[in-house]
Structure formats: C-alpha cells, structure tokens
C-alpha cells in the first residue's frame, strides 16, 4: 500500500503551502483519481511521491511505500525504488523521450538499472512491454527515433517504459491531456486493463472529470493544496457533498449546455 499522511509542501518565497495536509492511500489493483483545477497541487503531490521536487522545497509528512518511508530517504534508496516499485508517466509524450535515442533503447532503460539481464533478454522484455502497451509492431517501432512516432504511440512507449520493470504503482500525471479524444479513450482502457492484470496501483491525475469518472474507483478532489472531498467515484459524481466538487461537475459541458 502507498500511504500518504499529512503531506505538506512549502516552496521558498511561496505565500501559502503548495500542498497542505494531504492524506490518502492507494492500494494495489486500485485506480485512484486526483482531480482539481490547475494550481490545485495535483502535480506537486505527484512530484513529491516521485521525489522529484527541487531540493529547496520544504516537505513534511510521511509517504510510506509498502512500509518504507520515502521522505528523507537517501538518493540511493530513492533510485532503488524509482522505476522498480513506482513508475511515472508524464503529460507531454513529445518531450518525455530523449530525441537522440531509439525508442526500444529507452523502453529498456529501467531494466539496465534494476536488473542484471543481458542485452537480448532486455530487448525481449522491452518488446513484450511495448506489445502489452498495445504498440503495433514493437520490433519495427522500437528501432525508430521519437520524432518518427505519433503522440499516441509515444505515450504508449512511455507506458511501456514504465511497465517494463513491473512496478507496483504507476503515477500518471495528466497523461492524456496532450492526446486527442479517441486516443485518450484507448489509453484509459489500456490503463484499466494493466491495473487489473498486473494488480498495479494507479494514481491518475487529471483535470478532466469525465476521464476520472470513466476509469477510477475512488477519487480525490483537490483545491488550493488541500483535499476537499474524497470518496468512491459513483458517490462523488452523483451526490457531491462539497460545493466545489459540484461546481467542477457543473463545469463539464453537456449536450444541453448552451454556448455563452
């Protein structure tokens, strides 16, 4: 279980904390949505979980991964966890892959770090992960460079790179934002399937409530660095207790909503 308790982040010079007393837990096999408007602290929370914050940010609270405390862990301990226990996929697939390295080489990178497999075994695993991420013809795509792939293919390659070392938890920071709607739907299906098959905990960060509703089991609503509401997705969307959640839901355009 990934357990976060009273997580607060204060940036130097920032008036208010970017994240304040955030507590939640994520079980394996569960998909947890994290929604909120821009600047509500979603990404900072994710960066905290990944230990990617700038060193001068002041982080308090606890992040406990299967009994291991991450806040204050040494760089070597963090490196051992990253990519192996927890993997992360970013918003921008176009810039998340190194432009001068072949795709397959980047998908297998986590294996180079965390395992002692030889080149052929790594390649086989990388191609298997790419196939699992539903990339067509992994062997051919793997030999290409990132600029030769489409956005959706790149995002699948990123997911494959995250999956290759079989992490227990996957952090997805707005991973569908840069993709068009049909690809979004495919990526959501893929995440749902992977989470089920691999018993993997997924933290799905998005500002798009419709996606969260479609994919997640539970959801957290963040505003101004705090969690304002949490609950199962059905409850949250059908009977929001907080006024803010209701306003967020009302902001989803529907077939009947009029253009102003």
């Amino acid at each position: 279980m990934l357990q976060v308790e009273h997580l607060s982040v204060q940036f130097p010079g920032g008036a208010a904390p970017a994240v304040e007393h955030v507590s939640f837990s994520l079980n394996r096999g569960e998909i947890l949505g994290l929604v909120g408007e821009s600047g509500s602290g979603k990404s900072v929370t994710a960066q905290c979980l990944a230990g990617l914050l700038l060193p001068d940010a002041e982080v308090t609270g606890t992040i406990c991964l299967e009994g291991q405390e991450l806040i204050g862990a040494s760089p070597a301990q963090l490196r051992a966890i990253r990519g192996k226990e927890v993997a992360m996929v970013f918003q921008e697939p176009m810039t998340s892959l190194n432009p001068v390295l072949r795709v397959e080489r980047q998908v297998e990178e986590a294996l180079r770090i965390h395992t002692h497999l030889n080149g052929r075994q790594r390649r086989d695993k990388a191609l298997a992960a790419m196939a699992e991420a539903e990339l067509p013809d992994p062997a051919a795509l793997g030999c290409r460079y990132p600029h030769q792939l489409s956005g959706g293919q790149l995002q699948r390659a990123m997911i494959a790179a995250a999956l290759v070392s079989e992490p227990k938890y996957l952090l997805c920071d707005e991973i569908t934002t840069a993709l068009d709607v049909t690809v979004q739907a495919q990526i959501l299906d893929l995440l749902g399937k992977l989470s089920r098959e691999r018993n993997m905990g997924v933290l799905f960060i998005s500002h798009d409530l419709r996606l969260v509703k479609k994919l997640c089991h539970r959801a957290l609503v963040m505003r101004g660095g705090r969690i304002v509401e949490t609950g199962a997705v059905e409850e949250l969307f059908h009977a929001p207790r907080e006024a803010y959640t209701r306003r967020l839901l009302d902001a989803i355009p529907t077939r009947d909503s009029k253009l102003r």
Binding site: A50, L52, L78, R79, A80, I81, R82, G83, K84, A87, M88, V89, F90, E92, T95, S96, L97, N98, P99, Q106, E109, A110, I113, H114, M158, A161, S165
Partner: peptide, 16 residues
C-alpha cells in the same frame, strides 16, 4: 527536459 526527469524517475544515477 522531461526526458531527463523521467530517466531520473526510472532510478538512473546522475553519472549514467
């Protein structure tokens, strides 16, 4: 660049 950040997230050391 985010590809370096994602490399760091895979546990890649600074030297590598």
């Amino acid at each position: 660049a985010s590809y370096i950040q994602s490399a760091r997230l895979m546990g890649v050391s600074h030297g590598r």
